[in-house]
């Protein structure tokens, strides 16, 4: 390894290695800065804030500004415009309510009393125009954001953590208490 005659070629090899390493670092930096640039520019439009009805009343987002809204569908608020796929309903975090309008097919799990997450924006009349309805949960799963909102309002009693001992009646669909 340290034999004298080998020193010279080894040195050039080392310097070559160093130069290659510099190339590599420069390329990596270029790719990484490109990625950082892409991420930063996508942060403006690619990211949506989640809000609950109380937060909207407290601090109303600008009309047309897109955000996610979550809460429980108010019982009795659901109406359907006959002959269309236009729906109206309200959602609540048990403190405040927001009126919603939506056009399109509703997901399988959409029901009054159930937690949903919506995508859309408020219009001038304080009605939230939903472009998407996400009710992507099964009978014992609630969207986490909605659970957090309800916990904040102190009305969350649905104790899923201890569900190991909690075998519900097979005939009763679980509902939010």
């Amino acid at each position: 390894m340290s034999a004298a005659p080998k020193m010279k070629p080894k040195k050039t090899k080392a310097s070559l290695r160093k130069r290659r390493r510099i190339y590599l670092i420069v390329t990596s930096m270029t790719v990484l800065s490109l990625a950082t640039f892409l991420v930063l520019s996508a942060m403006k439009e690619g990211i949506q804030f989640y809000k609950d009805p109380s937060q909207i009343v407290e601090n109303r987002p600008a009309s047309g500004q897109s955000f996610r809204l979550g809460g429980l569908v108010v019982a009795g608020s659901f109406t359907k415009l006959a002959g269309t796929m236009n729906y109206k309903f309200s959602i609540t975090d048990t403190v405040e309510e927001v009126k919603i309008e939506y056009k399109g097919l509703l997901p399988d799990l959409f029901r009054e009393g159930q937690g949903v997450i919506l995508e859309g924006s408020l219009n001038e009349n304080n009605i939230y125009i939903a472009s998407r309805v996400l009710a992507k949960h099964d009978e014992n799963y609630m969207p986490k954001e909605v659970v957090d909102s309800l916990k904040k309002q102190g009305v969350w009693q649905h104790d899923d953590e201890s569900s190991n001992e909690n075998i519900p009646n097979k005939n009763a669909p679980e509902t939010i208490k």
Partner: peptide, 13 residues
């Protein structure tokens, strides 16, 4: 703050 990072973000990055 609660946000969601969805398809638009990944499509742009």
């Amino acid at each position: 703050d609660k946000i969601s990072v969805g398809a638009p973000f990944f499509n742009k990055t």
